[in-house]
Write a protein that binds this DNA or RNA. Structure first.
Lengths: 203, 203
DNA sequence: ATTTAGTTTAACTAATTGGTTAAACTGATT
DNA sequence: AATCAGTTTAACCAATTAGTTAAACTAAAT
C-alpha cells in the first residue's frame, strides 16, 4: 500500500492560504491553488470536496488567528497599563507574521456578514471584562473618562489598520520601501501602547 | 430624435457603486448591476464598454472620496490641535455618508497594489507639510516626542477602522444594533480628536 | 509476477459570466 | 404617414470556472 504523501495535504492548505488570503474567495481560482501546491486541480477535489469547503478551513483558521486567542489576553488578570502593552505588542506581532490575515478576514466578513453569527455563536467572545476594568480605573480616577468601547476600538484600530492599508501607507510614507515599512510596524509594538497610555492616564 | 434618458446613466452608476463597493470587483456581477439599475444587461455595455471600464469609474470616484480632498485638510494653515479636530471629524463624517468606501478601496488596493502607482502619480499627495508641522511642535516642546508618521497613521486608523470592521464591531460591542453603532461612530467625531490630543499634548 | 489499495492525472461536463448582435421600439422631425 | 437617430431588448456566443470521471500509475503485500 502506497504511503499517502503527507506533504501534499499541507502543501494544498498552504497554497490555499496564500491564494485565498491575497485574492479573497471570489478572486481565488482553484487552478491557481493547484499550481501553487504543485499538483493537479482534480487532486484538490480529492482532498477537499469543494472550493467552499477548502475556503471554510482557511477562513476559520484565519479568523481564529485574528480574534479569539488574542481577545483572551483581555480577560487575564493584569493591571490595565500592563495589559494594554501586552495586548498591543502581541497583537501586532501576530500580524507581522500573518500580514494578509486582517484584510482577508475583514473583507470576507463585510461581503458575508452572517459568517460572524455562525463563528461567534460557538465561542463566547467576551470583552465585557476588559470594558469593566477600564470603567473601574476611570471610577478610581486613574485614567481619564472615556467610553471603554471607544478605547477598545482605538486599540484594535491602531494594531490592525497598518496591515489593512499597507500598500498605500508603504507608498506614501516610505516611498514603497518594504524594509522601512517593516521597521515602522516593528516600532509600533512599543509606540502604540505608549500612545494609548498617554492618551488615557491622568496627570 | 428621442431624448436620452438622463436618469439611466445615473442609475447605472449608482447601481454599480452599490454592487462594486459591497461585493468588490471579483464578486460583482454585471447582471446584478443591471437588475439594480432596472435595465437590461446589454444596456450596461451600451453605456460602459466593459466591466473594467465601469469599475474604473467607480473606483476612481471612491478613491478620490477617500484620499485626496481630505488629505488637503492636512496642508492648510491651522494650529495643530485645531487641525487634528477638523481633520478627524470631517474624515469620519465622510465615511458616515460613504460607509463602504474604506473597505472597498483598501481591499482593491491590496488585491491590485499597482493601481496606487497609477492613481497617486497623477496627483501629488503630500503629507510632508503635516509631518513637518508635527515635528515643529515637538521641537517647541508643545507636544510629546513621537514619530510623526506614527501619529498620522494613528489618526487615519481611528477614523477609518470602524468602517472596515463594522460587521464584527457592531456584533460584539452593540449586539448588532445598527442604530447604536451609528451613534457610536457619531460620538467618535468628538472622542477621537480628544483622544489623540490627550495622547500627545505636554502637561 | 500478480494483486491491490491508495494516489495522481488528462480529459470532459455543466454552469456561470462578460460581452455581442441584430432586431424592435420610441418619439421628435419632416 | 414616413423617416430616422437614439434607445432598449431578447437571444446568442465564447471563455472561464468549479467539479467529475475513468483510466493510469505506484509501491507494498501476497
Amino acid at each position: 500500500m502506497a504511503e499517502k504523501d503527507l506533504n501534499t495535504e499541507q502543501k494544498i492548505l498552504e497554497a490555499a492560504r496564500l491564494v485565498f488570503t491575497q485574492k479573497g474567495f471570489e478572486g481565488a481560482r482553484m487552478q491557481e491553488i493547484a499550481d501553487k501546491a504543485g499538483i493537479n486541480k482534480a487532486l484538490l477535489h480529492y482532498y477537499y470536496r469543494s472550493k467552499d469547503k477548502l475556503f471554510e478551513g482557511v477562513f476559520r483558521e484565519a479568523f481564529f488567528t485574528m480574534v479569539p486567542q488574542v481577545m483572551d489576553l483581555l480577560k487575564s488578570e493584569m493591571p490595565l497599563f500592563e495589559k494594554i502593552r501586552f495586548f498591543t505588542s502581541n497583537y501586532i506581532e501576530i500580524f507581522i507574521n500573518n500580514p494578509f490575515i486582517p484584510g482577508f478576514v475583514l473583507h470576507e466578513l463585510s461581503v458575508n456578514p452572517k459568517r460572524i453569527v455562525d463563528l461567534l455563536s460557538n465561542m463566547g467572545i467576551q470583552p465585557a471584562l476588559f470594558l469593566d476594568q477600564i470603567q473601574a480605573e476611570i471610577d478610581k480616577g486613574i485614567i481619564k473618562p472615556i467610553d471603554p468601547r471607544n478605547l477598545l476600538t482605538n486599540m484594535l484600530a491602531m494594531c490592525i489598520f497598518p496591515f489593512v492599508a499597507r500598500p498605500i501607507l508603504q507608498n506614501i510614507l516610505f516611498t514603497n520601501d518594504e524594509q522601512a515599512f517593516a521597521q515602522f510596524v516593528e516600532d509600533r509594538k512599543k509606540a502604540v501602547p505608549e500612545f494609548i497610555i498617554n492618551a488615557i492616564k491622568n496627570e
